[in-house]
Simulated assay, not measured.
Amino acid sequence: MWSWHRQVKDSVSQKTIGLMRMQFWKTAIEEIYRDEPPNQPVSIELWRAAKKHQMTKRWLLRIITEREKDLDDRAYRNLQELETYAENTYSSLLYLLLECLGVKDVHADHAASHIGKAHGIVTCLRATPYHSSRRKVYLPVDICILHSASQEDIIRGSREQNIRDVVYDIASQAHVHLQHVVLEDYLQRVRKADFDIFHPSLQKRNPLLPIQLYLRSWKKTY
């Protein structure tokens, strides 16, 4: 369902068609949680997963609702709007994955929120060359205005400093979210060192941090 929702925006030529498809899934979710799933493979599998793992309906509906709003096919007005989109889609998906793994912990949810926001922001950046090739720009308007970067500059693939500054500001916000998770890793290491700030273990980087961040997002270790 997640992959399908991501493709709807690019695969439909009219917003009305996209809205009809989203409404189908809204109705399907309601029926799934009444134990009356539509006779459709994805719906049936989702019903089984929701029943087995007690998945929260709110997260599923939030993903659909946010994707539905995204069909307006316009640039994000500001960085906060992009973060809201990322929280309601990518973070919500991570909350569901945590539930499927049986993890119910506020610290894990906190990490999932930041990771989801960072993921959404990075995805927006990574997709920019593809979108610009179709003469579309979704980068936050306020950041573009701040650096005098026009949509036409981005569409023609400008590599001037002002475009780099736009990307820097947006990427920096994704980094801030990841730093929240990294800081928690450091604090955990400080605790293990009995708060000895000069302990040798704290004077070197953790080479396993990327793997640990992935694993800890699913475990009650925060």
Rank of each mutant, 00 (worst) to 15 (best):
L97Y: 13
L178S: 00
I155F: 09
Q14C: 08
D185V: 13
R62S: 15
Q179H: 06
L213E: 11
R164L: 13
T16P: 07
A174P: 01
R216S: 09
A108N: 12
F24C: 00
S158E: 05
D70T: 01
V12G: 03
E87A: 10
N206A: 05
R189P: 11
D35H: 14
Y138I: 06
A49W: 05
T221E: 15
D35C: 09
R164Q: 14
Y186M: 09
L208P: 00
S113R: 05
E66K: 01
Y85H: 02
D194M: 12
R135N: 10
S133Y: 07
E45I: 03
H180C: 13
S113M: 14
L202R: 03
H180P: 01
H131K: 03
H53E: 03
C124D: 00
F24W: 12
V182D: 07
L215V: 08
G18I: 03
Q7V: 04
L101E: 09
N162Y: 12
H107P: 01
A127G: 03
Q179N: 09
V42A: 09
S11E: 11
H131T: 07
K51Q: 12
D10V: 01
V106P: 13
L93I: 11
L79P: 02
T56R: 06
I121T: 04
D153M: 15
E45M: 04
L96F: 05
L98F: 07
A75D: 10
R159A: 09
D196F: 03
K51A: 12
K52D: 08
K117S: 11
Q7A: 11
V181F: 10
A174I: 08
G120T: 01
A112E: 07
L93A: 14
R21N: 07
D196I: 04
T221F: 10
W47P: 02
D153T: 05
A127W: 02
A108F: 09
Y130I: 04
R134M: 10
W59Q: 07
E36D: 13
Q212D: 07
H177I: 06
D35A: 15
Q80A: 14
C144T: 10
Q203V: 07
P140R: 04
Q203W: 06
L139F: 07
L209V: 06
Q161K: 13
Q14E: 15
H147W: 12
D35T: 05
R74Y: 07
A193Y: 07
Q212G: 02
R6K: 14
A174S: 12
K219Y: 02
A112I: 01
